[in-house]
Design a protein around this nucleic acid. Sequence first.
DNA 1: TCGGACACGATTGTCCGACAATTAAGTGAA
DNA 2: TTCACTTAATTGTCGGACAATCGTGTCCGA
Lengths: 226, 226
Amino acid sequence: MESKAFSEQAKTTLARTLAPRVAERTTLVDQVANRIRREIILGTLDPGRHLVEKRLAEDLSVSRGTVREALTRLASTGLVEFSPGSGNRVRYFSDSDIAEIGEVFAALEGRAALHAVLPPSPAAEKELRDIAEQMRGLRLPDDVEELMRLDREFHGTLMNQQPKTKLVEAWQSLESLLAVMMVPIMRRGVGTSDSQADRHLLLVDAAMTGEPELLIKGLEQHYYQM
Amino acid sequence: MESKAFSEQAKTTLARTLAPRVAERTTLVDQVANRIRREIILGTLDPGRHLVEKRLAEDLSVSRGTVREALTRLASTGLVEFSPGSGNRVRYFSDSDIAEIGEVFAALEGRAALHAVLPPSPAAEKELRDIAEQMRGLRLPDDVEELMRLDREFHGTLMNQQPKTKLVEAWQSLESLLAVMMVPIMRRGVGTSDSQADRHLLLVDAAMTGEPELLIKGLEQHYYQM
DNA sequence: TCGGACACGATTGTCCGACAATTAAGTGAA
DNA sequence: TTCACTTAATTGTCGGACAATCGTGTCCGA
């Protein structure tokens, strides 16, 4: 028998999980999707795990339809695998998968770099460095989640330097893949929080040269190192 | 009052819309999603159009839940815009959006080209050329759909030359964006079916040189021309 | 005449319960 | 062990239901 992943109270916590947003309406489906996504990323729900709709619905105290919609959404981002008729499973990513995901991001960010206002404005530079520095203080196994948030924020800031909305959008739609790839990496202990910080600072340096080529090279290395 | 977009018979046609696949089980949701996607791509449902769940459900003779799931899926690919509370609308793409989408694909395919087995095998070359040639015979305004299918097939074949599954996957998850961008282009009359064929043949030539750099350059031009 | 408060209808977000179809698992026989 | 079969679990889809919310048009007061 599988162990319960969502045992505790549900609705109460859910309602405020990531809610302190400005004023954007968050639907229940969003909250459920976020919740499950988090469990997957953190590894509470390990790869291959069968996600049974009814069970999730009960554990989270929502209707099956709501869970279903959330799962559909996760499936579209690639975190969950749908096999018509036989259910949804947490997707498994091999090492080479992870390497490739890195490439996808290198490709997209590299492309964006071509359009970026380089070098970044002083304000942007500061912001980027600040984010990188924040990574330094993290205790690794526990703060994975925070590290990922910072990572997303960093690369997001880097990409938002320029108004290429579609690139940013494509990037965002694949973003949770990035999150998945980070977890095993962290586990493997490949990077301490310090090295993460350093690696990102290198990127800032590359960007500050004002040479798109250098930033692109930097990005490639950044992702290959993982 | 809006004109009906899905007036004719529904279920019967739906069942076999794109079904001649090997043996993959297609759910009703898939069929509905395909159907709506097609209408959007073909322009029957113009940008900004409000997609009312109940209405679609009735027109297609399926339940609202099914439509909802289909819409969710389309939204995740970017074709449909969700605004919690106020409904789903067909997404509008500006010219610059379209240009950017082209860039995304150039980036991904270019990246894939780095890993491709270049030059393609004789078999692959033949297949690519065949596809390109098939474009030649099309009557344009009417055969848009077929042209798009060929285009997808071409680029898909090009990318499948190598086993970089994640790149391919990222590409696929964005594929319908590619489809949307082609329609206005066709309408604008930018390319006759002949020029389409020629442009793709140029890509084959580039690939056959065995030089990844040349293929990448080719891809960039390919998308920029649009 | 114009801006704003209000009421109303349309639509969405979510829930429930139900049922056939399909899949996965367990059982027994060869 | 392996194969065929029965059984239980799960999915795919349906219909209806209801509150919350949104968009819109109406009426009122300035």
